[in-house]
Design a protein around this nucleic acid. Structure first.
Length: 270
DNA sequence: CGCAGCGCCTGAAGGC
DNA sequence: TGCCTTCAGGCGCTGC
């Protein structure tokens, strides 16, 4: 999402939404309410894009799993998978989303009450407030599994299934642990930052549908160390990575490097 | 209230 | 070859 925000901002800031249309589903329909407003800025919180409008409202876009943002000429007809579009005069910003897991909303600025996950979002991973102590305290406040907590977006914003598996593996933390000591939480915090920073440098992770605004793929999928490698060797110990289902998500884990019980061995962090 | 489980969607991939 | 089943999963909602 950060790579998309960076590409999109220079293309749409300062332009006016002269027309809009959307799929009738409640997930997309309010997108049309942005019509008439001008775009002041393109911000991001976690996986949510926040497009600031000049009338004290914001257009919130979440891509779900299969969503893409693309810019096409206004004269071309939107294809059937375009769930919402905003005509900027000559060019049209389109939300292309095959599975309709994405979401669009036009709300009063910073009024996120209609989106509970956004309203309760944790700190940005690169914010100085996201410290090991913060993650330790956040994890301690819940009895849910560590991976479930990360996916909830509450301890820290923006960690999805792929990056959760990568960070947990690098930190030597089993995804089904329910508690972490200070050292384990500190290691996990460091690895979350490392994994996200590296992925952004590589333009994002393209596994299925992800594309940049220009339609290009990222390259981080070529460097994944854990996610999707079940049955293949652990790059640290050489053992075989296992597949579990945690919180309904496919999860890859090294049962040796990520023990379910005992202290987290922070010495193994790369 | 917190947590677990389910439903939303549809193309791709695998099985027979 | 073609039909059928299974799988992928971010988030919101529901119910215990």
């Amino acid at each position: 999402m950060e790579t998309i925000r960076r590409q999109l901002a220079p293309l749409i800031v300062g332009r006016q939404v002269i027309d809009a249309d959307a799929h009738p589903s409640a997930k997309f329909a309010t997108g049309v309410e942005a019509a008439g407003a001008a775009i002041l800025a393109v911000e991001r919180r976690g996986k949510y894009l926040l497009i600031q409008l000049d009338d004290d409202r914001e257009l919130v876009i979440h891509l779900g799993m299969t969503g893409r943002l693309q810019i096409r000429g206004s004269a071309t007809a939107p294809d059937p998978y375009v769930r919402a579009w905003w005509d900027l005069g000559g060019e049209r910003l389109e939300l292309h989303d095959v599975r309709r897991f994405g979401r669009v909303a036009v709300v009063d600025r910073s009024d996120h009450s209609s989106m509970p996950t956004l309203a309760a979002l944790g700190p940005e991973p690169f914010d100085p407030a996201f410290t090991g102590a913060h993650l330790w305290a956040a994890l301690r406040a819940s009895r849910a599994r560590v991976k479930t907590q990360l996916l909830s977006q509450r301890p820290v914003a923006g960690v999805g299934n792929i990056y959760a598996d990568e960070a947990l593996w690098r930190a030597g933390v089993h995804p089904e642990r329910r508690t972490l000591g200070r050292a384990g939480a500190g290691a996990l915090r460091d690895e979350i930052i490392q994994v996200l920073a590296t992925a952004i440098d590589r333009g994002g992770t393209t596994l299925r549908d992800y594309r940049t605004v220009e339609g290009a793929t990222g390259t981080n999928q070529l460097h994944l160390e854990c996610y999707g490698r079940a049955g293949e060797p652990c790059l640290r110990c050489g053992g075989t990575l296992s597949r579990l289902v945690v919180d309904g998500r496919g999860t890859t884990v090294c049962r040796t490097c990520q023990p379910l019980r005992g202290r987290v061995d922070t010495r193994q962090v790369n």
